[in-house]
Amino acid sequence: MELFLLAVSTIAIGVLGCVAWFWGSNYVLDSILPPRGPNAGANIRRAGMVRPWLFLGPAILFLGIYLVYPVLNSVWLSLMNASSSRFVGGDNYGWLIGDSKFQESMINNFLWLLVVPALSTLFGLIAAQLTDRIRWGNFGKSLIFMPMAISFVGAGVIWKLIYEYREAGAEQIGLLNAIVQALGGNPQTWLSLQPWNNFFLMIVLVWIQTGFAMVILSAALRGIPEETIEAAVLDGASPWQIFFKIKVPQIMGTIAVVWTTITITVLKVFDIVFVMTNGQWGTQVLANLMYDWMFRGTPDYGRGSAIAIVLMVLVLPIMIWNIRNVRKEMR
């Protein structure tokens, strides 16, 4: 109950505070530079120069403190020692390069980057194409899209049940081992089966992201002008040819967007590895490695920050590509 009151009063304070700021600051501006009287024209112009910043103020403040400052500060911290008390230059980065866990994480992240966006986009494309052509398509779409709403931790539990292991010959309660045993194979402890366990973790993310890819690609497929398809049908193109030679090339831009968006999610993948293997058995990834260094007995902020900066650098090309696209569009 106390919690409830706290939450409600926070919402009230937050909302009222925002409203008070926006309304109050505009009111003050209008009374200092009234848009009427002898100087109306000049006043409106001058107020027009100030007003955008009143509207943007809180947002800029938040973005500055919670995103821009941390990036800059992380760069600085990554050049300091564990407790950030002494400048150590590039030592943390030097240590990273030689650290076997870091190398393992880089390789694994790279594998994730190769597999997850590709499979998610592929399945998403197939799902979009299939569900667009059938009567119960929307219902089917909902179900494929559903994992999007499930937390990574929840998905971890769901898939752990699928990978559950019982000794050979015993009744299997994990679906995967039950199938393997029914086909005459030996049940495995999938999550510690190197190096394949990485792929069993990736499947979880593919399962979640396919719905996202499907929704976007389905909209793109429907946006293809009918004439191009009709022309192809008249020329006698087979359904396969229509799909791969007419439709897919026309939505290449959207495929690229889906691919990069999933790529960013993959780079930051943390929860799945954290709850399913916690980086054991050769499944470590950058985000989890960073968490390790941050929350280990005595936190090492220098090394943790260095790993975070590596992540940031990996995201940078996509960031630049996105910004260029948006600027092109705004012109």
Binding site: A308, M312, V315
Partner: peptide, 10 residues
């Protein structure tokens, strides 16, 4: 697209 991880320690 800034990774959250960068923001945690600061």
């Amino acid at each position: 697209v800034v990774p959250l991880q960068v923001a945690l320690i600061p």
